[in-house]
Amino acid sequence: MQRISVGIVLLFWCCFASAQGNQKPVTCGSCHKSQALTQPGTQMGRAMQLPGDNPELSAHPKLTFRSGLYLYTVETHNGQSTYSVSDGTRTISVPIQWSMGAQAQTWILFHEGRMYESTVSYYPNLNGLFTTVGYEHAAPKTLEEALGRPLSDEDVRTCFGCHTTNAIIDHKLNLSTMTPGLSCEHCHVGSVAHLKNAIKGDSTTGIASLSDLSTEGISNFCGQCHRTWELVTRSDWRGTMNVRFQPYRLANSKCYDGTDPRISCIACHDPHRKVVNDVAYYDDKCLACHSTALQANAKVCPVSKSNCTSCHMPKVPFPGGNFIFTDHQIRIVKPNEPYPN
């Protein structure tokens, strides 16, 4: 309730300030221009897409996929998408309201009073549908089971907690306060109050600064969605399926130091900007340690001083082959060595 009321106050102050000055509404972007300009276009900014704002589905008006007895169809007309599953005699069709993911997409469906995670997902590299990760061995016995996996309250909190902003209030889903994707206040707790005060002219009340967190703290912060080292270990998620859990992989690197900012997530990635895919971009980050001039005890690569990640952070196909991830367990990769867990 506290966060809802803060939101109402924010709205009031935005309108008030706008009316007073007859200017554009004051937003985070009014001061933090560069972040506000690029962040909404990032994968995190587009972590959830709503009907009418889903370029991938709009570009694929009809997608089909057969899995055993069941035929899946995703059809999009005028921005509205429908997910259907049929066993040849019966069909369940539900509107797609919540698309999780900016490129690859899994859908949260609402059917007969409860939420389901779709059994099939859209994969850009396939340009089509395929089984959702984790469902590879599922053998649904009924059409209802074929629709998707019923979500527990905890699942709902996890899905909406990571793909939206302000959807989870007091541990419960609240769609009325939800903003799709990750916006400022998802990560910067206190930004609403900060904005409110800034509108009043008080810019001294800052938000909790994430840059004050240690490298370990940042890993755990990002790991709330990208999975922490602890969660992956506790769950015993072994094998190449854990390559997508970057905080886990990074912490397993020999060079990982929870207090050294040069190995922090944000040393390499600016969450306000799209992920950089040019391997050369990351050379400076590696050489911040692996250079004799800077740190005597860090090894210096005898092979090259450029494109470090192309060898030391290999690309690993995710089981099923629909994704390829950069392995964040930084290491000297030896030929034919098994994937280190």
Partner: peptide
């Protein structure tokens, strides 16, 4: 793990 990591006891 978390405590040692935060304390810099790598």
């Amino acid at each position: 793990v978390k405590a040692y990591s935060e304390l810099g006891q790598k």
